[in-house]
Design a protein around this nucleic acid. Structure first.
Lengths: 157, 157
DNA sequence: AAATCATTGGAAAACAATATCAAACGTGAG
DNA sequence: CTCACGTTTGATATTGTTTTCCAATGATTT
């Protein structure tokens, strides 16, 4: 487990009087073994491939902990389940474009989004914290193949 | 029912070979009797205050129809149920700021958001369709009163 | 070793949303 | 008007996600 991740996790557990356990370590390691977005059930499958005894409840509980301590973020992909984004630690902020035609998710960086966010937030009398911009757009390649469905891409800058 | 709304609904029903029914009219009227965001269960309550025989299934089915024909939009308020926004027909595009402290939702208009959206979308090689910017921010008036919870405000321009 | 408290897995519950289906309804043809 | 047909409905069952419950287990402190 990456040192920065371990530290953040440890701090959070300590501050709440919680313990480091084998299950929590397996789950955190599994989360960061990929940078794809995922939902709880997908993660459960991945975790169980490593340790089949880990329960569904523990996965859900650990996800909550990870969001609390900033190791994960919810990401709005316009689907009904809750999706998580493990791919933002130590990286510039990114946002997501979702293709209406093929469901691809493209991560993109654009510094103007954050600037605009701060400007609008202050104008409305609030203190900036976080923004997310979700773009829905067409690639006009309807059903071009089955494999891009739900796949994430990262845009070159 | 507003003429523009009726026309759009009729066109959609006709194009799918569907019928205008008492239930669908009650539901559509109820949706537009307020400009608040709502979820399906809240709408069901409001509809049943008018006509207690309307079923949950019909409400869900009619919401789907209304989204299909552009009378409603999903809105991402960061809650787990699906929320709908009835407040965008014939109006400039707006986006939402959600207060982390008191859960208020502030609708705001800003023309730069749409410009930025188009610019980013084209840069990534997609054809623009729709964008939503969700801002989460602090009002620093934690729990200042119970009444602002989940209430929507509209920002002056 | 005992007391205390966190943690776990599994089952059950809660919840939103969808699917199923027989009965009721509306429409157009005759 | 009546019939035949397809649509619509409400009720219920079902699905799928997420949360809660609980007794058993495990870790830590004294």
């Amino acid at each position: 487990m990456d040192a920065q991740i371990a530290e953040r996790l440890n701090n959070h557990l300590a501050s709440k009087g919680l313990r480091r356990t084998r299950q929590r370590e397996v789950i955190v390691d599994t989360v960061f073994s990929s940078d794809e977005h995922f939902n709880a059930e997908e993660l459960l499958d991945r975790v169980r491939a490593v340790d089949r005894t880990v329960s569904r409840a523990t996965v859900y509980r650990t996800l909550t902990l990870m969001v609390e301590c900033g190791l994960l973020r919810h990401v709005d992909l316009g689907r009904e389940q809750t999706y998580y984004d493990p791919n933002f630690l130590d990286k510039p902020q990114h946002n997501h474009l979702i293709c209406i035609d093929c469901d691809r998710v493209v991560e993109f960086e654009d510094e103007h989004v954050a600037l605009l966010n701060d400007c609008i937030t202050r104008r409305l009398g609030f203190r900036p914290q976080m923004q997310s911009m979700r773009i829905e757009a067409h690639c006009d390649e309807l059903g071009r193949n089955g494999t891009c469905r739900f796949k994430t891409e990262r845009a070159a800058r």
